[in-house]
Amino acid sequence: MVDAGQNASIDNLDKDQMKTFSDFLMSYNKLSEMCFTDCVRDFTSRVVKDNEERCALNCMEKYLKMNQRISQRFQEFQMIANENAIAMAQKSGKL
């Protein structure tokens, strides 16, 4: 009984971890594609130029900062929506 429960929780943990890992890999690929298309236009040489590298690294850092900001704002909206829902529920409970 105890074993089965533990196994289930390990399975769940694994599933969540796998999801997080695959999300990470997907965003890694997406970031590479995006920054490559935005920063590398010159194919007269096979080496990555200094300015291309700088551009790509800036592109990545900026994207992560943008993501941080969007997630902050998203959470704020989520919180307000939650509070509104709770207030509505209380109001309809009183009526």
């Binding site: 935005d38 920063c39 551009c55 800036n58 592109c59 850092e61 900026k62 994207y63 900062k65 943008m66």
Partner: peptide, 16 residues
């Protein structure tokens, strides 16, 4: 959508 609309694809610096 917001990345496309708000961040021009010129990456002179890493700061927003």
């Amino acid at each position: 959508a917001c990345h496309k609309k708000c961040i021009p694809p010129r990456y002179g610096e890493a700061e927003l």
